[in-house]
């Protein structure tokens, strides 16, 4: 089931249908297809390899057990993402113990509206940096965000869930998702711009 490179068409709906009919190989195909993304999501939210592995396993085992409850009104991928997010947030809360991770604190786009770094980027970073270097830079940047911003950005802009789906998965209101996403995007922009800005523009940095 090597479909991730695009050479074989991956038909999610057909696999889900077969898996629901009791075809375990079809379910394994879904796991094969999505394990990378779910593992990345789990790592990015929990920030911990051990927790991420637990989340990965628990999410797919839960999906397998509850496949009968999946009605196909959303994509299987969206469904497994939601299960994984729930597992990841539980891990995060458990690990933080008393320092309860609240995703719902009030956010304001205040004075430090995180746009200090005004510089254009030097060409296409995807072409300048290797895939490995890029991944490291992007991971480091995302890990610098607060959990609340990180989770929202991860779901909206990495996993490409809608605002409503993100709100539902994180148990946040739609406006809360929107304000967190704005902060997350601006903070990441700030960090990446430090890395990718055209070097000549540094001349103005002291102004």
């Amino acid at each position: 089931m090597q479909a991730s490179n695009g050479s074989v068409v991956f038909d999610e709906a057909a696999l889900v249908e077969r898996a629901r009919g009791g075809d375990d190989a079809a379910f394994a195909g879904l796991v094969e297809q999505y394990q990378r993304k779910i593992y990345r999501l789990a790592r990015n939210i929990t920030q911990n390899a051990e927790d991420a592995e637990d989340v990965l396993q628990d999410a797919f085992l839960k999906a397998y057990t509850n496949l009968g409850k999946f009605h196909g009104d959303s994509k299987f991928y969206t469904w497994i993402v939601r299960i994984a997010v729930n597992e990841a947030l539980m891990k995060l809360r458990k690990r933080r113990g008393d320092k309860m991770v609240s995703l719902d604190e009030e956010i304001e786009l205040g004075e430090e509206s995180v746009t200090r770094e005004i510089a254009v980027w030097d060409g296409n970073p995807e072409q300048t940096y290797s895939q490995e270097e890029m991944r490291k830079l992007l991971d480091d940047a995302i890990q610098s965000l607060k959990p609340t911003f990180r989770s929202v950005f991860q779901l909206r802009d990495v996993e490409e869930l809608s605002t409503e789906e993100t709100a539902e998965a994180l148990e946040l209101s739609v406006p809360a998702v929107k304000s967190r996403l704005l902060r997350a995007r601006l903070q990441l922009r700030e960090r990446l711009t430090k890395q990718f800005k055209r070097k000549g523009d540094d001349a103005f940095a002291f102004l």
Binding site: Y39, R135, I142, E160, L186
Partner: peptide, 15 residues
């Protein structure tokens, strides 16, 4: 630069 930030994340293949 915000558009580019979003683009690089969307385009990144998971390890």
């Amino acid at each position: 630069t915000t558009q580019k930030t979003m683009r690089v994340y969307k385009g990144a293949e998971p390890q």
